[in-house]
Amino acid sequence: MGCVFVKQVKHTPGYEDPVVLASETAFTVSEVEVLYELFKKISHLIIKDGLIHKEEFQLALFKNSNRHNLFADRVFDLFDVKRNGVIEFGEFVRSLSVFHPNTQQEEKIRFVFRLYDLRSTGYIEKEELKEMVIALLSESDLCLSDDVVEIIVDQTFKLADSNDDGRIDPVEWKDFVKKNPSLLKNMTLPYLK
């Protein structure tokens, strides 16, 4: 009786077939395979378990694992679809697909809305926008008085909150982005193609 040796390729936990991922996303199979190499690299930066932890995401993004950043946290949380504190390969590919040059603008608009809807209420509220402006100022070492921050937030709401109910809903957001397309500038990564 002979023996057959099958070479098994060891994949990270949460690995999904590139053919399946390509069929569900904007990526080709070969692009998914390239993403797997990037995923493996990031997911082994600190804890070598093949999953991307927040510290590893921060390290890959900022070259610093301890750099707290509200927006990076939000991106991580949206990528972590299962809400288990780590990003698996499938989550990584499906989420990055939003940033693909071929992905519909509508999908990008919806993603940014969720990103800015900090408390997942279905609206972007003034307090949330103020919190994000303060976070951005702190990140940039810019110092503006609270009054000036209020003016910026109020002015933005005058432009975006067309029904003037004190919160921005998905329809208002879509209209606002259509008038200000530069708001989506981070949402397309040419590297992905």
């Binding site: 990140e139 910026i152 002015q155």
Partner: peptide, 26 residues
């Protein structure tokens, strides 16, 4: 405040935390 600063979302979009392009830099 300069008019360009009047759109808070423009300001926010400059955050490094939103620049995922850095993930692909070697």
């Amino acid at each position: 405040v300069r008019p360009a600063l009047m759109n808070a979302f423009e300001l926010i979009s400059t955050s490094q935390g939103l620049n995922l392009g850095t993930l692909f830099e070697k």
